[in-house]
Design a protein around this nucleic acid. Structure first.
Length: 484
RNA sequence: GGCAGGGUAGCUCAGUUGGUUAGAGCGCAGGACUCAUAAGCCUGAGGUCGCGAGUUCAAAUCUCGCCCCUGCUACCA
């Protein structure tokens, strides 16, 4: 059983059929904030992320590129590792679903689930062009003809193993409703409840090996491999060494599992079903973030030519500016837009003008009036209950809003007190008091920013902590003079 | 089609159980200052609260109809 001193947070595992995009980056950053915040509160933390590597799409991609599947996944998985490093993500683990450990444990889990697994015939509409089954609704919409290949869908059947998900719908619903299993935000929670109300059917969890053999073999049946989703979900516990490892005992259930809205049902309906069948606890929170769009809510995609890579933003503006923008200006409970213009506007007004300049003017005054010596710094005094509440609810945007209110408050204080006037009047004791108070505020702000912008927060804290300010300090965020 | 959530200042959004001149940030304009990254502070302009009807002494807030947007609708991950 996880204790209140231990904290386990995960991201979903990106599927490695393409390069990392902004959505992946944002998810890593969000989970990282939670992990850093927990560590700051003296908890023992396991923060896990990784890559999902099986399934037909990967196999197809490799075939398309004429390269061994494993080689493709190695390359693509590495791209995610590189991004994680670039974003200053503090993950403790990085699991790949192709790891031997995961595969072994997935088989073990399959064995344990056997009481809820049965063999059945899957009947569906199959397009020989797409090489995949289409849903009943899709077939209806297209009048039984595949629009991509202009050929009729065939009625095909195959042997599959099924998982008795329907058995667990009552319990899942109850746990969501009584919030012992929290789905954040409410819109996603309602979505899942509606889904369950409509009835959860048993799901197919294997594929015949002759159609696809890039996957984990079903134990005791070498004609079948596990369906990629079924096995990928298990990473959240295999990475802890389920069932026998101490980490599993110490850290499960997860405190927060961060996912994107597109995979909600897998994490709030199917995943709980698996856990209930294994007779282990559900995660405490599944937090579902939204998508990042281009200006005007337009979808960002390579084919539209409006896709922006995380790398390009970080390289231009720095990692903390990146983290700040996506945490504060993409609504934590919804979708948001990214554009270079918006990013730069935010960078200048909030990071350069407000935060950066406040630090700058404070150090400048301490240097000019007191030779860099601050003196006794009073303890922090602001009420941060709101900040804490927002973080506990994964409301990253509002938590940062609280910090910025403090920064604005400090600027107002400075203009009211006018330390430069006090300096001229010669009341050096009063001046010292005012400057020390300003310092105290900035130290508190630095502390609150630690989970969000680790490097910047560190810089602010080391600037003031010793009680002596260095002579030459470079601005935290130099203004961007845009060439328009 | 069904279910859910939206449409509020140029932009991004707040608006608690219906109640005095509808709010914030950005952007814009003006002012006083000078410690600072020409940053910060103060003041101001700007909205028939999607459209139409209804309930009410009173509606952005409730009811009905219509228009528009987004998500989910279960086996692509």
């Amino acid at each position: 059983m996880s204790t209140k001193d231990n904290y386990y947070v995960t991201t979903s595992l990106p599927y490695v059929n393409g390069a990392p995009h902004l959505g992946h980056a944002m998810e890593f950053v969000m989970a990282d904030v939670l992990a850093r915040y927990a560590r700051k509160n003296k908890k023992k933390v396991i923060f896990s992320t990784g890559t999902d590597e099986h399934g037909s799409k990967i196999a197809e991609k490799a075939k398309e590129k004429n390269m061994p599947i494993k080689e493709l996944t190695d390359i693509n998985s590495q791209a995610f590792k590189d991004l994680i490093k670039k974003l200053n993500i503090s993950n403790d683990r990085f699991i790949r679903t192709t790891d031997a450990g995961h595969q072994q444990r997935a088989k073990l889990i399959w064995e344990k689930l056997k009481k809820d697994i049965y063999k059945n015939t899957y009947i569906g509409w199959y397009c020989t062009g797409c090489e995949e089954y289409k849903s009943e609704a899709h077939v209806k919409e297209t009048n039984g003809v595949c629009p991509d290949h202009n050929r009729k869908y065939e009625r095909l059947e195959e042997e599959n193993y099924f998982f008795a998900l329907s058995k667990y719908q009552g319990v899942i619903k109850e746990k969501i409703e009584n919030s012992s299993f929290r789905v954040i935000p409410d819109t996603r929670r309602n979505e899942t409840l509606a889904l369950i109300r409509g009835g959860l059917e048993d799901i197919s969890i294997s594929r015949p090996k002759d159609k696809l053999d890039w996957g984990i073999p079903v134990p005791g049946d070498d004609t079948q491999i596990m369906y990629v989703w079924f096995e990928a979900l298990m990473n959240y516990i295999t990475v802890l060494g389920y069932p026998e490892h101490k980490d599993f005992a110490d850290f499960w259930p997860a405190n927060v599992q961060v996912i994107g809205k597109g995979i909600n049902r897998f994490h709030t309906a199917i995943w709980p079903g698996i856990l209930l069948a294994l007779e282990i606890d559900l995660p405490q929170i599944v937090y579902v973030h939204g998508y990042i769009n281009a200006v005007g809510g337009q979808k960002m995609s390579k084919s539209l030519g409006n896709a922006v890579t995380p790398d390009s933003i970080v390289d231009t503006y720095g990692v903390d500016a990146f983290r700040y923008f996506f945490l504060r200006h993409i609504p934590s409970y919804g979708d948001g837009d990214y554009s270079r213009e918006r990013f730069e506007a935010v960078f200048n007004s909030e990071l350069a003008n407000e935060l950066g300049n406040t630090v700058q003017r404070t150090t400048a005054m301490i240097n000019q009036y007191q030779g860099g010596i601050i003196g006794d710094i009073p303890p922090a005094e602001h009420d941060i209950a709101e900040y804490i509440k927002h973080l506990e609810n994964c409301h990253f945007d509002l938590a940062l809003e609280v910090v910025w209110q403090q920064i604005r408050g400090l600027n107002q204080y400075i203009d009211e007190q006018k330390p430069w006037t006090i300096a001229k009047s010669g009341d050096m004791d009063h001046l010292k008091e005012v400057l020390a108070y300003m310092t105290s505020c900035l130290l508190e702000i630095g502390d609150l920013l630690l989970p969000f912008m680790p490097e910047t927060a560190e810089k602010i804290i080391t600037t003031f902590k010793s009680g002596v300010v260095a002579k030459e300090l470079t601005p935290l965020f130099p203004r961007i003079e845009s060439v328009k």
